[in-house]
């Protein structure tokens, strides 16, 4: 199977490294970063391109760009791992649609297009008979999409509750454990590289709300949008509030919640008993799914990271290969 990769940030490099280390029969025929691209239908040497990126800061020919890769390269699956634009989803959305129109599958970690234009992408993909997979958009390494699509197939989803933002969870954990103020814990998160210079998207609850939209669109009747989510961040919390919670053997976590029967789509800090499965430490993510048949299932795992996100991308790639190339033992 041949793949073209858009984006050579932390996720893109993680995917390349893992494809280079593991003999999965996946060949990279094109790569693009923000300023250049490299296309070779005979296959690109992964160590060479990683080295070029490290030495020169770009991966290839500066006269080429992502759109050339999408429209001219020889590939089966487009791996779209560029940074999220939550407002328009562009330019990733255009690239994904162009790949779909050429009859290629898409695997992405990009929350923008999936949360903004879910129904457009899905209907276009089904017209063309291709897959759009987005495991890496929610919960990092946690296989939540595979769990919902395959593992829990046939179940009715009654509710989803999740800790979907590692930065917020880290801040709340530090405030509770060390009695740090919100500002101190945020500063520490920045020093550790968990928080962006502008942490608004995380601490105001927008990032987990976008992830909630992506999850909810799997089982909600109508298409869900970011505007439908009731959002409260963690930036007004105090260490005194956490201490008062602890006196009652409780703590506070930023919980994303979707309950279809009650029309609830909410991200807000909530009180939880310390023994609750969603009370996870540090940058971990956790998701509880309530279903009619399977009952309650909680998944806990790393919500971010280069190799962790690559795990989710590779899971999607191998799923597509198994479904569409007949390499699965039963269909071979």
């Amino acid at each position: 199977m041949k793949v073209a990769i858009l984006g050579m940030g932390s996720v893109g490099r993680g995917v390349l490294r893992m494809l280079g280390e593991k003999d999965l029969g996946i060949e990279v025929t094109a790569v693009a970063d923000s300023g250049s691209a490299l296309i070779d239908k005979k296959g690109i040497s992964i160590p060479e391109i990683l080295k070029a990126k490290e030495m020169k800061g770009s991966c290839g020919d500066r006269s080429l760009g992502a759109i050339d890769v999408v429209s001219a390269a020889d590939y089966d699956v487009l791996v779209e791992v560029t940074p999220t634009n939550a407002i328009t989803g562009e330019p990733a959305l255009t690239h994904m649609l162009a790949a779909i129109d050429r009859g290629h599958h898409v695997v992405t970690s990009n929350k923008g297009p999936i949360s903004r234009e879910f129904s457009l992408l899905m209907s276009r993909a089904s017209e063309k008979g291709v897959c759009v997979r987005y495991e890496a958009t929610v919960g990092g390494a946690i296989p939540i999409m595979h769990t919902l699509d395959q593992g829990l197939a046939g179940n009715r989803i009654l509710a989803i509750f999740g800790v979907l933002n590692g930065t917020c969870n880290f801040i709340l954990t530090r405030m509770a454990d060390e009695g740090l103020t919100y500002e101190q814990a945020l500063l520490e998160a920045r020093e550790m590289g968990y928080a962006e210079a502008d942490p608004t998207y995380d601490v105001k609850g927008i990032d987990p709300a976008i992830k909630l939209v992506i999850l909810a669109n799997k089982f909600w009747k109508e298409t869900v949008r970011l505007e439908d989510v009731d959002i409260t961040g963690i930036d007004k919390l105090t260490n005194n509030a956490l201490r008062l919670a602890e006196e009652q053997h409780c703590t506070i976590r930023l919980i994303a919640e979707a309950i279809p029967d009650r029309g609830i789509l909410r991200v807000a800090p909530r009180l939880l008993p310390l023994s609750h499965p969603l009370v996870v430490e540090g940058t971990l993510n956790a998701i509880t799914i309530e279903t009619d048949m399977a009952g309650e299932i909680t998944l806990i795992g790393k919500g971010a990271g280069s190799v962790e996100t690559a795990s989710a991308i590779l899971g999607d790639l191998l799923y597509i290969r198994d479904i569409h190339e007949g390499s699965h033992p039963e269909t071979a």
Binding site: F161, L237, A241, I259, D261, R262, A268
Partner: peptide, 10 residues
């Protein structure tokens, strides 16, 4: 002011 409610599963 910020109101923090308990999480109650369905």
């Amino acid at each position: 002011f910020l109101l923090v409610e308990p999480l109650e599963e369905i």
